[in-house]
Write a protein that binds this DNA or RNA. Structure first.
Lengths: 206, 206
DNA sequence: CGGGTGCTTGAGTTTGCTCAACGGGCGTGG
DNA sequence: CCACGCCCGTTGAGCAAACTCAAGCACCCG
């Protein structure tokens, strides 16, 4: 990539905050490995995860920050960051880059709106099923309806709850229900086997 | 505006669907007057409003549609639409335009994420209070905390419920509660007087 | 005046939350 | 090596918030 010269590779431990790091928040970064969560909170401590960024997503907010979301590494993360100045200079000389930023922003907007439907209108079981499908789909974008798929959840129960607008207890109960119904298997609480993606989808409410 | 030559002014009756209209969905439009709602639905009929666009917002999805959201006029609407071809041609010769599209997409993304927090973590009363503040803020962006403000809601109770992820009965009950508490006055069900925006804000959860 | 639509209110039910106890995995220290 | 504590997740019991269903009211229009 043309940015190679000015970019720096960074490793973030799980749980690391990405705000505070001026170079990252002012500039832009490319996630090479791992999962970053975007969080919004209320004054009384309630929190909602408003976005998940997987490799190889871009990360950051060009032009005017103040986005009021904070970012945190959900897993160990490796990213390739470059300063704000570099990015803006590159945009000036290459409309192509701005175009790809626009495409990513529109994709994130679609994802956010999909999730608004989940948060506003789905019940707890449907939300958990939707979440599992989201992760399964990230692990294998070409997933077939009848194909068994296994993966490790990149998030704790608390993080899942904060993503789904539920409590940890409710998340746990719905996972148990899916397990008892034979739709999934749960091992070591992080490792999930989806026996039947098509059936899981029927639980997700569409 | 430079687009004046190829643009056409359109009037939409309240309730009119904007999908189906190829010229609008493929292209882009400028809302001159009124409110447009963006809707997502589940197969069983549940619906969630995932965005509200007020004048003078842009409307539409450049490059690759298939956004799976449908748009509908919440009030009578006047918009100025231009065909996809025109827009794309203009973008080619003016990076400035793409830049403003990016800015609008980022703004909509922020709004969507704000609302995810509301949908995922606020209770019914907080949601209704947040909605009233949202509308009040649209009516008067320079609203002061102690200033009384009156306005007509641009949406029915059903639409408000679909926006807040609630039922119409719950919306009605929370409005009653705010009225009984003296925070607002309700006249003819559409006309709202906010006696004390600062106090309303304390009900909105932040 | 009758019917329709949209809103409000009430009663009962359901869903998910709260609070609390318990259990397994893992790291630390004896 | 085992004992202990800690963290995370699970499970249970009771409760509270929002939903469902149903009735009633105001307004509009024919």
């Amino acid at each position: 990539m043309a940015l190679a010269k000015t970019s720096t590779k960074k490793r973030l431990e799980i749980g690391a905050e990405l705000v505070g790091d001026a170079e990252i928040i002012d500039g832009y970064a490319n996630i090479l490995f791992g999962v970053v969560k975007l969080i919004k909170g209320l004054p009384d401590g309630r929190e909602q995860i408003v976005g998940l960024q997987f490799a190889p997503d871009f990360l950051g907010r060009p032009f005017q920050t103040e986005s009021a979301v904070s970012a945190q590494a959900a897993t160990n993360v490796v990213l390739c960051s470059f300063p704000k100045r570099t990015l803006e200079a590159l945009i000036k000389q290459s409309p192509q880059l701005e175009h790809s930023l626009l495409k990513q922003a529109l994709r994130e907007l679609d994802e956010a709106r999909d999730w608004m439907l989940t948060l506003g209108r789905k019940n707890a079981l449907e939300r958990v099923a939707s979440y599992l499908l989201l992760i399964a789909n990230y692990i294998d974008p070409a997933l077939r309806p009848q194909e068994v798929i296994a993966f490790d959840l990149p998030m704790s129960r608390l993080e899942i709850a904060d993503f789904l607008g539920l409590t940890i207890e409710t998340v746990s109960r719905q996972l148990t229900k899916l397990r008892v119904d034979g739709v999934i298997q749960v091992r070591q609480s992080r490792h999930i086997v989806v026996n039947n993606p098509a059936r899981l989808k029927t639980f997700s409410g569409g």
